[in-house]
Simulated scan of single mutants.
Amino acid sequence: MTLIIEDGTGKPDAESYASAEDLAMYAVKFGVTIPAEVPAQEALLRRAALAMDGMTWKGRKSSSEQALSWPRRGVELDYEIKPDNYLPARIQYGQMALAAEIHTDDIDPVDQRQGAVIRERVEGAVDVEYAPISNKSGRLLPAAPDRPSRTQFADYLAKRGLFAVRA
């Protein structure tokens, strides 16, 4: 089933900001692994779009009828209010990065990952011990310490950076 792509008009049935073809070109450009089959690529893009809908973005939806979080009105960037139909390229790139990250998490399950090397002993044979990865929250941990999608989204999220909470 072909993806319905958001083009900045606030489509009520949009499923993605990028096409499977866009994702395939992104994977080649940035050397990330994605499934070879178009339906699997489209499924990843749909999953990434759903994850993006759970993020807190600047501004508010341009229309209550639109399916996805973007386009948005009231988005201020570099001291400039962006138009209501503004669909940043970094939202599309971020979705593709997030789709690749989701695929990495799918093929490298959390319970099979290893933490940093905390002990390495070399005598006759090499003995390596890895730190356990705690996952008490039940949420997936990132496959890598840096997530390219978060870098793409940073200017468009309502909160950015580290925040201290006073107890």
Rank of each mutant, 00 (worst) to 15 (best):
D7E: 12
G59T: 07
P71M: 10
E129C: 06
A154K: 13
A99H: 00
E129G: 05
E76T: 14
M52S: 04
A100E: 01
A43W: 00
A158K: 14
G59C: 10
I118A: 07
A20L: 05
G124M: 07
G31V: 00
L50K: 13
G115E: 05
L45H: 00
D13A: 15
S149I: 02
A51K: 09
F163K: 15
E123N: 12
N135L: 06
D106I: 10
W70D: 06
L141I: 08
M25Y: 09
M25S: 10
G115Q: 02
A18M: 06
I91A: 09
L87Q: 05
L98Y: 03
G94M: 00
W57V: 08
R47G: 06
G115A: 02
A97K: 01
F163D: 06
P12W: 00
V165T: 12
I102D: 01
Y79F: 11
A143C: 10
A143L: 03
P88T: 04
D78P: 01
G161H: 09
S149N: 08
A43Y: 00
D111P: 00
L77K: 07
D22I: 00
L87H: 03
M55P: 02
P71S: 08
S134I: 11
P142E: 02
D111S: 08
A100F: 00
L23D: 01
D146G: 09
F153P: 08
W57N: 11
G138D: 04
H103T: 01
I81V: 14
R46F: 00
T56V: 13
M96I: 02
A154H: 10
E15S: 03
A49V: 02
E123R: 13
P35W: 02
E101N: 08
A100R: 03
W57M: 10
E101H: 09
A36W: 04
D105F: 01
D108V: 13
S19Q: 03
A51S: 11
Q95H: 04
R119V: 02
A36G: 06
P12L: 04
Y130V: 06
V126Q: 12
A89G: 08
I34C: 03
A164I: 15
A36I: 09
T104D: 13
E37Q: 15
G8A: 04
E21T: 12
K11M: 14
D7N: 14
S19L: 02
A20N: 06
L45S: 04
M25E: 15
Y79S: 14
T2L: 06
S137M: 07
E37G: 08
R73A: 11
S62I: 07
P109M: 10
Y86W: 15
A24L: 11
S64I: 10
T33V: 06
L23G: 03
Q152E: 15
V28R: 13
D78L: 14
K82Q: 15
A158Y: 10
L44V: 06
P145W: 08
A43H: 04
S64W: 06
P71T: 05
L50V: 11
Q152P: 01
D155E: 13
